[in-house]
Simulated assay, not measured.
Amino acid sequence: MMARQLWWAALLLGVSCACAAAPAETIRIKDIGKMAGWRANALTGYGLVTGLAGTGDSSRNKTTRQSIANMLSRYDLTVVADDVQSRNVAAVMVTASLSPFARPGDAFDVTITSIGDARSLVGGALMLAPLKAANGQIYALAQGALSVGGYKYDMNGNVVQKNHPTVASIPGGATVEQGVATDVTNAGTSVTFVLADPDYTTASRVAHAINQSLGLGIELAVAQDASGIAIQIPESRRSRVTDFLTAIENVAVEPDRRAKVVINERTGTVVSGGDVRISKVAVSQGDLKVTIMTENTVSQPLLLIRVNQGRYGTPVSNTQVEVSEGAETGFVAATNNTVADLVQALTRTKTNTRDIISILRAVKAAGALHAELIVQ
């Protein structure tokens, strides 16, 4: 069966026509990178979630009890931490990402995660929590009712749970108190465009496309390396840098693409570019079948039955292993084809994905697959 399948694969590869190459696709520069300095800022904070229906941290969590005592002291209430026995409060961490051009008063989402032994955050509300950056300064304040995409209820050993009830979010729950001064220009005279996937060919094409689109007759964009393109801002555009950057972002370019084949062995997924080439190679795969048969019997001698009345015999398992290999092996000859042709041909012959992955890895090891093989 395997020999017949691979024979059909060879036939399909042999009759595949050499179609004309598809026209290259051009995309905007803003879709393959960003301006240097454009980055989000991570914020973190510590807070308390109240209003839980007995699903908060237990009395064993000293951090939560101390936090409750400290919070009440702000309202002129003196409570010893050891006297706090409430399970309606949970200690949480608050995380968020501050956009590069955030201004005071802007709202953004925050994520709440439990750090204690709380069972669920359903129905809780976050008390006012300051959010700090890595420099220790407060940039936002978070507060509000939690939105939990799950639940957990347990009673008498029975547990019903959906998703992760100890993780929640507050849409628009944080307010910016201190904005971030983001300047993507270098003293207002130049900018640097950074590619998401560094490549010398793509960087050179981007610089060439920018110089052609501006039409000023001078070379303003220069590829510094495989990732960065330095762009000079003309003096006539320095008063309106935003309009200049808008024109730069919408320049169309044809990026170069590296040949890659991505294999996920856990899910049996193979993803590759349609034009990844395969040199002349022969693929041969045998058909091995292993059969294991187990027969369970009971050994019960007659003399033992008479001497030990009422006792059972001894179970005995007899196992047989048979290995059979097909008389013929499959053969596929791939000549100047692509990975897409080979995978499509093998799929039509009902070759399973695991075998296709093994074949592609063997072709790569033979030096016939001209692409980077990424195994996840």
Rank of each mutant, 00 (worst) to 15 (best):
A9Q: 03
L12V: 04
L13A: 03
G14D: 13
S16V: 09
P23F: 07
E25Y: 09
T26A: 15
I27P: 02
R28S: 11
I29N: 02
I32P: 02
A36V: 11
A42D: 14
L43Y: 02
L43N: 00
L43K: 00
G47R: 00
G47L: 02
L48T: 00
T50C: 04
G51S: 07
L52S: 01
S59N: 10
R60S: 14
R60P: 04
R60K: 13
S67T: 08
A69E: 04
M71G: 05
M71Y: 15
D76A: 09
L77N: 08
V80F: 08
V84K: 01
S86D: 10
R87K: 12
A91D: 01
A91W: 00
T95F: 03
A96W: 00
S97F: 06
S97K: 11
T111A: 12
I112G: 00
A118H: 03
V122C: 02
V122M: 08
G124C: 04
A125Y: 05
A129K: 01
P130F: 06
K132N: 05
A133W: 01
A134I: 11
A134C: 08
I138C: 11
L141I: 09
A142Y: 03
Y151V: 06
D154L: 04
M155V: 12
G157P: 05
N158L: 12
H164N: 15
G172F: 09
A174F: 06
V176G: 05
G179M: 09
V180F: 11
T182M: 12
T185S: 15
V194T: 15
A196W: 11
D197Y: 15
D199M: 02
R205S: 03
H208V: 09
I210P: 00
N211L: 05
Q212L: 12
G215Y: 07
E219S: 14
V222I: 14
A223E: 00
Q224R: 15
S227I: 05
P234K: 05
R237D: 15
R240F: 11
D243P: 02
D243G: 13
T246R: 09
E249I: 04
V253H: 05
V261F: 01
N264R: 09
V271K: 07
S272L: 04
S272P: 02
G273A: 08
D275C: 01
V276T: 06
R277E: 07
I278E: 02
V281H: 02
V281I: 11
A282W: 06
G286Y: 04
G286C: 07
L288F: 13
K289C: 02
K289Y: 09
E295F: 00
T297A: 08
S299Q: 13
Q300R: 15
L302E: 13
I305F: 12
I305S: 15
R306W: 14
R311L: 13
S317Y: 09
S317Q: 15
E325W: 07
A327Q: 15
A327G: 10
A333S: 14
T335L: 12
N336R: 13
N336V: 02
N337H: 07
L342Q: 07
V343H: 01
A345V: 03
A345M: 07
L346R: 01
L346V: 06
T353W: 00
R354E: 15
L360W: 06
V363S: 03
K364F: 10
A371F: 06
L373Y: 06
V375S: 10
Q376E: 13
